[in-house]
Write a protein that binds this DNA or RNA. Structure first.
Lengths: 215, 215
DNA sequence: AAACTAAAAGACAGAGTTGACTGTTTGTTG
DNA sequence: CAACAAACAGTCAACTCTGTCTTTTAGTTT
């Protein structure tokens, strides 16, 4: 009599995914305080009972969302590498791409969690370690993409500065569309990086073959 | 029979001030979603009725808090100028001071409002113009303090980048104490600024000792 | 001092939130 | 196919939040 056979494992996976996407969508649309469990279940088209079955408390739901978002951020970051020019305008392209990444919806959602975690010990306990890991990974990606030699004194700090800058730009972008300004600032910044890190050798060969790390 | 004579004007001023400080304190301690009107009146030691008399709605209270905070930010920023060395380490000192400003409590409170405003049209309507004005003022202060010639192409963008950078660092500082890292990054960036903007006369020794800052 | 107005207090209604709880359906397993 | 467990549905109580309303107190004005 069972019309369609759906194994439990799959059903669970689907339910959880629906709830988590709904949760993140709400985070983006209505912010942390506007994301109630009731709304999440409504938007996900899931009954309250089912929701409470999969995530017995709001904390559980949000923590799962944190994990899920982290994965999304990682994916988006990885996709960043593709399609970037390799020669002359490399640095500018990389920096702009980072800027876009930190001005997207995924970052917005993360920002909501970030700010909420500041005053929510439970959330901070989960988010803290994740952010630390994501931070390190992002740093590595940036170093990779730019092809920077981190043993040069001060180079590491400049990369960190670059990442904190795009974070700041992302913050500014939440309130008003800041794209044009961001473009200008980041282009200038990229030039600065080129000069300071000798990616464009001062006076001569544009960036001696610093072997590009693959992937 | 009246034991202490307090004119109405003064009473009003005091009440409003108590409520606003309580509101901002709560913003810092419990974040936007943790700042309920009930809590504000409790913390201020003001009855619910009195609160509603002075601020007939939560929106009214928060809007007044926005104004009040803006004033505080202005003051803090103005105080920044004092006590900064004038000669050699000027740029570093200025940049560090900016970094500290954007990592303080006042910034934290503003950040809560900022993020909340993203998904709250009414709040955004009030905060938007304020932030724009404060942004412009901060930019001017930075230009002043650094003594930058903004007619130089690209100089303006570098100042903007500096401010967005400290904003990003401020954001990072909310979750974990980031002081040491911030110091390093900003020192490095200050050197970069000196070089790029010719604040240190070209021809003089370009920063001989890159000794790592202690602490 | 009486009349008037602003300030302050606190109770209350209405809406919304969270999570517990009971019952029903669906898949899995012996 | 019978027994069992997981998944799903929906109601309910306790709590919190906001803003209205009535009442009392304190300062101002004539």
């Amino acid at each position: 009599m069972t019309t369609t056979r759906v194994p439990q494992e799959e059903r669970t996976r689907l339910m959880r995914e629906r709830l988590l996407t709904a949760c993140v969508e709400l985070l983006i649309e209505r912010g942390w305080s506007g994301t109630s469990t009731t709304l999440v279940s409504q938007r996900a088209g899931v009954s309250r009972g089912a929701q409470l079955h999969h995530f017995p408390s709001k904390a559980a739901l949000v923590m799962a969302a944190v994990e899920w978002l982290a994965e999304r951020r990682r994916e988006e970051l990885a996709a960043l590498a593709d399609g970037l020019p390799r020669g002359r305008g490399r640095t500018r392209a990389v920096v702009q791409a980072l800027g876009d990444h930190f001005s997207g919806e995924v970052f917005t959602a993360a920002l909501e969690l970030w700010v909420a975690a500041r005053t929510d010990a439970e959330l901070l306990g989960v988010l803290g370690p994740f952010e630390q890991r994501i931070g390190r990974e992002t740093h590595r990606v940036a170093v990779d993409l730019l092809g920077v030699d981190e043993t040069v004194p001060g180079a590491r700090e400049l990369i960190q500065a670059t990442l904190d800058l795009v974070r700041g730009l992302g913050l500014a972008n939440t309130i008003s569309d800041d794209t044009a300004r961001r473009r200008r600032i980041l282009n200038r910044w990229a030039d600065q990086l080129d000069e300071a890190l000798g990616l464009r050798a001062p006076g001569a060969a544009p960036r001696p073959d610093r072997k590009e790390t693959p992937r």
